[in-house]
Design a protein around this nucleic acid. Structure first.
Lengths: 226, 226
DNA sequence: GTCATCATGTAAGCCGTTACATGATTGC
DNA sequence: GCAATCATGTAACGGCTTACATGATGAC
């Protein structure tokens, strides 16, 4: 499967420099997906990405973050810098290792985002979509359409298999609820696709405004409802 | 996490004897969950369960032989059984290894089903519910209520975390859709809980009537044993 | 001076996958 | 006799978790 954690880390680092502990918090609080990722996988992933040149540790003394300082600021991994900062900063913590994404990391990120090779579950799709603003409009459309096709296929498989077996109440309830959930996911994708398409026709500058509007007709009704 | 595959295998074997290939088919076609389980995990799981005494290989020639031949893998014995089977059965395929659940396997199954220890994802809950007829009514209620509490908590966490951050359209859409999905899951559980409760209060004879009123099919003589 | 929280890491292991290897039976 | 399907297995590996180990800081 796709390195979903790598993708998430890089996606968060696209926005601002972060250290591991804070990355985990944002994973939990901000995205909701990957809520329970453990440090035992997070820190090795960060070090792996650093070794691969996709991210780099930020030197504390050189700080240029003029914009949003995210309550955590950015501190160093260097002892001297830490000591100097300990008195000046009110939130000077321990040996934070703050990471920043590199150009090659950006490239890796979009490659991971647009990767079509591997089977996609709800989690990996959700993560991709959450970072979809970093994709080109065409790749965004492709992502949505690919996911839609997968869900439609799954719906067909369920409908096809269901006809001749005799399930008890509980098993049937599970199957039916699954069917409904998938159908609703498809309907959601249809709304996103409609927005995306009308978006592409609108002027590029107005994009975010247009994107907020919803309620456009899906291009095709979801069948197999019951 | 809970051995979700073991649970599925045992659950299917509760109903009838099956060989590995057929178990996989039923996993895919009948339950829908665990659709893509691979042989590379299925066969080792079966052999593990056999070693643990939870299932046993069915001797083809001797149908009702009470002598439990533990199928320790003696080559000659298996070959003989294969040859015997090949001519007797009209659908005599290759060296099928048909498994049957044992009494200790039944015990393991209900333990796995009712296990409260580990964190439960959608898949493991779906599987548990699909086999809920093997649970006592109390354990069934507990299963549903536990899952409901988890989802409510998750909803709270999302709502709590959402208020102060500024997400772009895509990320927000993901979060909102997640929220809606969880809410619908809770609503589904509420319907199941209502049925379950009125079911428990109604006289045993009236149960099917009650179930129909809730929009469910009347169940066949399943529960109460095990 | 000790506890909670912040912060980073390592080691062992589980659960499951893909890829590979083998063999039987049926239908053309 | 050859391909497709049925059928069972093994080997290598990958991602993620739990448990463990370490250490700083602030509050009481």
């Amino acid at each position: 499967m796709v390195r979903v954690l790598d993708m998430a880390i890089l996606g968060l680092l696209e926005e601002r420099e972060l250290h591991g502990y804070e990355i985990r918090r944002q994973l939990r609080d901000q995205l909701g997906l990957l809520a329970n990722v453990s440090f035992g996988s997070l820190y090795p992933a960060l070090n792996r990405l650093e070794k691969a040149g996709a991210v780099e540790a930020v030197d504390a003394s050189a700080e240029s973050a003029t914009v949003v300082t995210p309550a955590t600021g950015s501190l160093s991994g260097e002892w001297a810098a830490l000591r100097a900062r300990r008195h000046s900063s009110p939130r000077g913590r321990r040996s934070r290792k703050v990471f920043r994404i590199t150009p090659s990391g950006r490239q890796l990120f979009v490659e991971l985002l647009a990767d079509q090779g591997s089977a996609e579950d709800a989690r990996s799709f959700g993560l991709r979509l959450a970072f979809a603003r970093y994709l080109a409009p065409g790749a965004r459309l492709a992502l949505l359409e690919r996911r839609r096709a997968q869900l439609v296929q799954r719906l067909d498989e369920i409908a096809h298999a269901k006809n001749d077996n005799e399930l008890d109440v509980y098993a049937r309830s599970v199957v039916e609820h699954t069917t409904e959930s998938v159908a609703q996911d498809i309907a959601w994708l249809d709304r996103l696709l409609a927005t995306e398409r009308s978006d592409g026709q609108a002027s590029t500058q107005e994009r975010s405004t247009v994107a907020v509007r919803q309620g456009l007709e899906p291009r095709r009704a979801v069948q197999t409802e019951h």
